[in-house]
């Protein structure tokens, strides 16, 4: 029951970003003079704090929130890159004196920047298919909104329309594939999926496509460029062909279920 509290100790960058996001939204509702400057300062401070907290996370690897996230050195490395690039963007962005950006709400820009950074951090550490898909969509939806940020601009509108349609269709197709992955392995947790896959799927357990089954015993493989003559494993006297022995030694490359029937130049039995 204390798992969330324990995970929170190594989750401070994301917590700081969420709090900063909410504060920016709140400050943006106040109609005061210096709110844009205050928002800029708050965003920079939040990102800098998240950067420092990410540096201090330490190098040991651990799972957070019951395996929803995995925190390891390479994940922290990517977190630093992502937060750093957000810092550069916010630091380099100037609203004053720009003709295109006149009349646009600045608070929304800062809130979207913080949200996209938060979802990037989640995506860098995601360790479960549900978490992966959720953080991916968080990044996408925030980016769709940011592309449409120049209101009244035809190019911005059209770009965001095309982006959201292509993005939604491709993530839909990806989701269909993820559901098949869940069906094959029976789990949405990435380590469990890896375990199932590493234990070796049998040939019948693989996604097989309609294939030819005409040849008597030797399964027809597409002619592979290398190795040309199967130097290893050495041909055993009992084996009928090098293609057959390699299928015994390499279960992963055993049979390429190809849509294309093997041409007559393929291996002969």
């Amino acid at each position: 029951m204390n798992e969330p509290l324990r995970s929170l100790h190594r989750f401070w960058p994301e917590v700081v970003l969420t709090v900063g996001l909410l504060l920016v939204v709140l400050i943006d509702t106040i109609r005061a003079r210096g709110r844009d400057v205050a928002n800029w300062l708050l965003t920079m401070a939040t990102l800098a704090a998240a950067f420092v907290l990410s540096v201090r996370l330490g190098a040991q690897s651990s799972g957070l929130f019951e395996g929803m996230l995995a925190l390891d050195p390479i994940g922290i490395f990517f977190k630093l890159i992502l937060i750093g690039s957000s810092l550069l963007v916010v630091g380099a962005f100037r609203f004053d004196g720009s003709r295109e950006l006149r009349g646009l709400g600045q608070g929304e820009f800062y809130a979207l920047m913080l949200a996209v950074t938060l979802s990037n951090l989640l995506m860098a550490a995601a360790n479960d298919l549900a978490m992966l898909y959720l953080s991916l969509e968080m990044v996408s939806i925030t980016s769709y909104v940011m592309v449409a940020y120049l209101k009244g601009d035809r190019l911005s509108n059209e770009a965001s329309l095309k982006y959201i349609l292509f993005g939604a269709v491709s993530t839909g197709a990806m989701l269909y594939g993820l559901s098949l992955l869940y069906g094959m392995t029976g789990s949405t947790s990435l380590p469990e999926i890896r375990q199932v896959l590493a234990s070796g799927l049998t040939d019948a357990n693989r996604l097989t496509v309609p294939s030819t089954s005409g040849a008597p015993t030797c399964t027809r493989a597409r002619p592979r460029p290398s190795p040309p003559s199967c130097p290893w494993p050495p041909r055993r006297p009992g084996s009928r062909s090098c293609c057959g022995s390699s299928s015994a030694a390499w279960p992963w490359r055993a049979r390429e279920p190809g849509i294309w029937p093997g041409p007559s130049t393929g291996r002969t039995c």
């Binding site: 969330p4 995970s7 969420t18 996001l21 939204v25 957070l64 929130f65 019951e66 395996g67 929803m68 996230l69 809130a111 979207l112 949200a115 938060l118 979802s119 989640l122 479960d128 549900a130 978490m131 959720l134 953080s135 969509e137 968080m138 939806i141 925030t142 909104v145």
Partner: peptide, 15 residues
């Protein structure tokens, strides 16, 4: 065990 995605979904809806 799904606490984190549950909370992250609320941020997504806000955005």
């Amino acid at each position: 065990s799904y606490l984190l995605p549950f909370e992250a979904a609320s941020v997504l809806l806000l955005v």
